[in-house]
Design a protein around this nucleic acid. Structure first.
Lengths: 202, 202, 202, 202
DNA sequence: GCGTAATCGAGACGGTACGTCCGGTCTTACG
DNA sequence: CGTAAGACCGGACGTACCGTCTCGATTACGC
């Protein structure tokens, strides 16, 4: 849909059922056998599809995995919105705790690591990811901060992009690199530390 | 050296020249052909070594890559120390700019991505990484913050672990996920934002 | 034309230009790429024709090749006749030398081997071949022998079928199985030996 | 054994059991599924062998088939000899009837057609065939004729090579090209006609 | 110093998956 | 309805590596 990197064949004739069977098979296999053992051959077999049908429409295994994620989030429809109770710290804690929850969920762990790996090794994929999946989410995060900023809860000259990354990156890093326990309590500490900053407040 | 996960053969008889040839070949090939096309077969051929000699001493491709990094950093000897001029912000800027420099260096980009990928998919490796490579570095970072804290430049109750992650994670994330430009200016903004926090300071 | 083995579609609406383009393409490709690499796909592409148009009208690759030969020889029109100067031995030498010439001609070698192979593996095709291509030619050979027989140059009780095969088979065998040099001199020896027989003539 | 056409790997380390399993599997499959559906993949699977082990030692499917025949006839050991009762015509009838029998045996029909096809399309194979399989047999045929020649039953100046081909080619041709019924009676007619020749004997 | 046991380079082995090609069927749009 | 075009499922192709195994040929101990 969004990831054709080569001169595309006649997309009008594309068989939609095959496309969905492939993406579903890819996602399922990712959970079942893990990223390292995921093969195009396996996806084709599981989807009941010729290998050529995959190679015709996707340039790489990563692109298939990626589109499987697109399919997943596309079903949600309208862009995401972060909760806004007026209390930023509470809202952020809520959201980050949910993120922690999701990252710890074994159903999503493997697929998301696979996605992260593909993105890390393929800038093209990264660009599409930034536009289609991460973009809307990041905008929602920025929007929540902007709202707090207007309410006077955040510094007027705050760099929202940096702020967003400063809140969410520590979580993603711990998760991806197994560099420490990923708990709700940790999420809270990140929120508190980010909001207050490192310097003493008199 | 550090990553034998299986009952080791008699290490005393190990041929040191082969070990180094393998690690060097692994590192070189990582640069030359990239992570995706790196093969044990290729490493063995390049190193002029039988495949069995690799399988005898390392449990996985990731372990070889990892030890190649160990070899690199082991040469440095004593533990790293961050500069301490008394001015935390300046020091952090300096260090982060250097980090940005290194991440943008094409000689290290591929190998480090490979290492990151292996760590992401192998918790055992992650543990060894945390202990041997990341540990000392992280301690140095914490130490610099502690020094600033004692000088009254940082909050007394600051969570140093979280603080460290809040400063360095945004950079690593941008780099690994290609989620934005990685510049010295960006490093400066991260430092400033982290130090001040998101909330307004009156 | 002669080899529809399945319930044929409405042949009246058949497009003659496509038929000829297909057969011509088949024959050309046979020369150019050889029998092993000849594909329906390739024929269709070369002929500017949909694959289905081939499958609609021919049951197998062999049938296409076969019809290509039919097209070739059909152009000759009336049935073949062997020369009859009254001197059988001379006439046979002439004809066999011509056959040797043709078999050695690189333009016909590949296609004819292809035809022979198809016939060897498909009795249906063999039957059509016997009727349409080989039949008339064989009749001409028999006729020449019959004429000689009536002139008293051949034994009265001679088995003409066996005689024909005894003269031509050695050539075809040498050619098809690469079992010896195929020269005009060899043709002469075959003629002489066949006419005289193995037994001594006192 | 005789058909390595490429720079051979270290043949000393070759696994004899695999070699024989491959050739046996090839021969069996040839009978079971036929030549057209014979695949390297199938042979490897049936033989319990990796595909590479076939590609390592044979340059083509034809070479495998060929060696399977070599294995078969190699087991017979010493060179073949045709019966010699002193009565050439009777002996030839016996041998040709046996040949007819064999060619009509469904167990050998498919494999031998396969061999014939490969030889027809691969001159290299044909050369090895001529030397290893057909050679000794042809020599035996020539020897029988030579014996009859010395006994005064054949013309003194008879071309033995041509004579042999004149006797056996008609049979092989009928069989390979399905160009007529292949019966004992036909064999007899060929023998008689060849011995007497076409010309009348007064 | 001398067997002997382990490591080494080499590479064949049974396998899995790759990415490509083609076979034969089916669908679409046109004439 | 026949056609050109070409997507589809299936499956074989020949290649690249996997991780295991077996070979001599060096080693380096232990006796």
């Amino acid at each position: 849909m969004a990831t054709q990197h080569r001169a595309a064949p006649n997309a009008a004739r594309r068989k939609e059922t095959s496309r969905q069977a492939i993406l579903a098979a890819a996602f399922d296999l990712l959970r079942e056998v893990g990223y390292a053992k995921l093969s195009i051959e396996g996806i084709a077999a599981r989807a009941g599809v010729g290998k050529q049908t995959i190679y015709r429409w996707w340039p790489s295994k990563g692109a298939v995995i990626f589109d499987a994620f697109l399919l997943l989030s596309a079903s949600e429809g309208e862009p995401p919105v972060l909760p806004d109770t007026g209390d930023l710290e509470t809202d952020l804690r809520l959201v980050l705790r949910a993120t922690v929850e999701e990252l710890n969920d074994p159903r999503y762990d493997q697929p998301m690591r696979a996605l992260a790996t593909e993105i890390a090794h393929d800038p093209d994929l990264a660009a599409v990811y930034a536009e289609r999946l991460d973009g809307p989410l990041k905008e929602a995060k920025r929007q929540r901060l902007r709202s707090a900023q207007q309410a006077g809860q955040l510094a007027e000259d705050l760099d929202l992009d940096v702020a967003v990354e400063m809140i969410w990156s520590p979580l993603l890093n711990r998760w991806l690199h197994h560099s420490g326990p990923l708990t709700a309590e940790y999420a809270d500490r990140v929120v508190a530390t980010a909001l207050n900053g490192l310097r003493p407040r008199h």
